[in-house]
Design a protein around this nucleic acid. Structure first.
Lengths: 230, 230
DNA sequence: CCAAAAGTGTTTATAATACACCCATGG
DNA sequence: CCATGGGTGTATTATAAACACTTTTGG
């Protein structure tokens, strides 16, 4: 490229890494898949899943590779959050880290693989201590997720194929970390016309039983619609 | 860092650059500051202002340095847009490019410096041919600007200290590339309580004359408020 | 019967949208 | 006097928010 006439060789190269904020949803809780650090320095702390970007791949590809290694899943929803470039952010060497967040269906992922990798699902309600600037990365990723979830109905990426409106509401409450009105949430969500009611009920979570819903294939909301005000 | 047990030295380093999408506003037009490529390959094409990230600076700092070099301005509004990492995106060497967008007060910037640098303001209505993936970068930056402008009143970063509501509306029309209703825009903007009317009128743009307004210092809207629906 | 969630309905407040209309004035 | 933007008002519709109430059923 032609950066103001600068010669390339005057400048330094750096490691380029991706770090993934991996969100999952289980038992009414929004969770994060974290990697346990078993050695010094920062022993006992937790970190995001990450890896370096290889010579023949983009950062997107690298993120997908890492996610597949850990969860066994392909076709994961993935979005760039931000780049962290502070010169001293890594103590070993200069590393520029591109943050992604991913949405994972915990019911589909390979939990053996996760365990092998020393990874663990943590509830967003009680997160452990992070290494370096990883806590900030999580915060930024959550903001981005809130932005997305406020604009379109997320759920197909996090919930099982069929789910009740209670489960969907609990998901939204977990994402926005506040309680939502039952009736209003229901009306809003159904008005989007992206859900289809099934003829089957879930009776494990209530006496009366709640209908299961599923996402209608390819029925993304046309325009941005505010589901939850931030 | 501890990327899944990988050794750093197994991996490659890349150049890390920033490219700036520099927005300005003048004569009712949203404009972009572009740099003319006077030599092959891609002679006659235009590119964003960019530069490499130095060893002792973050990408934010690098972007500010470049902006100051070109416009003479400090304290510019600046926001990260996205990172471009495709392995083949630069023909010379592997370069990871971090895109920023900046909002510039054209009335304040150093136009001699700009000219010296072979730069030129282009209206968003008729942009020239870009090198590489720079066109895509501009699109992404505009989307990000629209997101910001839809959530809070931009203008202090682009307009002169005092401006009429016509000028502000024209700015919004340029950002969103659509016409806005005079009365409704006026009501919406004034309801935000961030503008103060001055006792002075601008008579150059209308027979009757329109009051000048200015931004009230430190009066950012508390919560996100939709000014223009996307 | 009671608690807890399911599901529906109603009311009020607020905001978006589409316009109509008068004002002021330089040419 | 008229075209152009300045500025205000209003009626209509849409959306958000708060909340009351009825249904269902296992324990």
């Amino acid at each position: 490229m032609f950066y103001m006439g600068e010669k390339y060789n005057k400048f330094s190269k750096y490691f380029v890494a991706v770090d993934c904020v991996i969100f999952g949803y289980e038992d009414g809780d929004l969770k994060l898949l974290l990697y346990h650090r078993g050695f010094e320095p920062a022993k006992g702390m937790w970190s995001l899943m990450g890896g370096f970007v290889g010579e023949k791949e983009s950062s997107d590809t690298a993120a997908r590779r890492i996610l597949k290694n850990i969860t066994g899943l392909e076709d994961i929803f993935l979005e760039q959050v931000e780049v962290f470039t502070e010169p001293e952010r890594d103590t070993e060497d200069r590393v520029v880290s591109i943050i992604y967040y991913a949405l994972i269906r915990i019911d589909k992922h390979n939990s053996d693989k996760v365990r092998e990798n020393g990874a663990h699902w943590w509830s967003m309600k009680s997160l452990p201590d992070f290494i370096f600037d990883h806590k900030e990365m999580v915060n930024k990723a959550l903001e981005k997720l809130q932005l997305k979830a406020g604009m379109e109905l997320v759920g197909s990426e996090l919930l099982p194929d069929k789910f009740t409106l209670l489960q969907l509401r609990r998901l939204y409450e977990a994402i926005f970390q506040k309680e939502l009105d039952t009736g209003n949430f229901r009306k809003k969500v159904l008005s989007l016309k992206v859900l289809q009611r099934l003829d089957e009920k879930n009776t494990t979570e209530s006496r009366r039983g709640a209908y299961y819903f599923k996402f209608i294939e390819g029925a993304k909301e046309k325009s941005f619609d505010r589901i939850v005000k931030i």
